[in-house]
């Protein structure tokens, strides 16, 4: 359990942290991801854009092992996520292996998904204590720091239902950070918020993007935010990446017809 307790940051050497290899995912007869190849380098902030139903969220859910790929492999930091290498042969991974690899990934959900039965502080400390094996004191100290970071230092003892949506989402960000992930997955984190609460959450994320070297993979409809924090933008359509590049290029001079259509619809 002590593997995660050394506090050095993951090396930001531009090495490949996430790799999708020929990944196909179907729901019934509907192919959501079609032989997808893509990779994310360590320390990068990558935003996935595209029309709804294009498979963006599916990528995040595959990485979080909430879904299993039908074909292909996913690697995180050099380890297979849903497979194990047994004597040169790839076999489906057991729960334990998957969990070890998954510990490098944190996720923030559209609907926050805080645990309603726990106060804010315990929402944040529960996993570090019981999964990473941190002492309760250490986890609480860290949790308070993180709550200060997201501007909610005074809400330790509140229950999630007593907070606004924006506050809940900031707690959820703190909860994900408390696991010291190398990668953060952000799944439309502002879509469920009232408009006036969006800015507060995005500010926190901007802050994290600019001051830490956590790799980020975001699905968002906030194009200004995407332009602001992204190193790379991936345009999705019908289960494939049809265009990618730095935000300046994608947002100002997209090459693909579908990208132009999509951007003119959302901007």
């Amino acid at each position: 359990m002590a593997t995660e307790t050394d506090h050095t940051n993951p090396a930001v050497d531009g090495s490949e942290l996430i790799r999708f290899d020929q990944v196909t995912k179907r729901f019934g007869s509907n192919t959501v991801l079609d032989n997808l190849d893509f990779s994310v380098s360590s320390g990068k902030h990558v935003t996935l854009i595209g029309p709804s139903g294009s498979g963006k969220t599916t990528i995040l859910r595959l990485l979080m092992t909430l879904l299993k790929p039908d074909e292909g492999t996913i690697k995180v930091d050099g380890d297979y996520l849903t497979h194990e290498d047994k004597g040169g042969k790839l076999v489906p991974a057991g729960e334990k292996h998957t969990r070890e690899v998954r510990k490098k990934i944190g996720m923030v959900f559209q609907q926050f998904n805080l645990f309603p039965n726990m106060r804010v502080l315990r929402n944040i400390t529960e996993a570090p204590v019981h999964v990473l094996g941190l002492s309760k004191d250490e986890a609480e100290t860290r949790a308070r720091e993180l709550l200060d970071l997201v501007g909610l230092g005074d809400k330790c003892d509140a229950y999630p239902t007593q907070l606004s949506g924006g506050q809940q989402q900031r707690v959820a960000i703190a909860r994900a950070l408390a696991m010291r992930p190398q990668v953060m997955l952000l799944d439309e984190v502002t879509s469920a918020l009232d408009p006036e609460l969006v800015a507060g959450v995005l500010d926190v994320l901007r802050d994290i993007a600019h001051t830490t070297d956590i790799t980020m993979l975001c699905v968002t409809h906030e194009m200004n935010f995407a332009r602001d924090i992204s190193d790379d933008v991936l345009m999705f359509d019908a289960g494939r990446v049809i265009e990618s590049g730095p935000p300046e290029k994608i947002f100002t001079e997209p090459e693909h017809e579908r990208t132009r259509e999509f951007l003119s619809a959302v901007l």
């Binding site: 979080m64 990934i105 944190g106 696991m179």
Partner: peptide
């Protein structure tokens, strides 16, 4: 979603 959040935090 509660189960998913718990998976995302690597609980057994």
């Amino acid at each position: 979603a509660q189960r998913e959040a718990a998976i995302a935090l690597s609980f057994t």
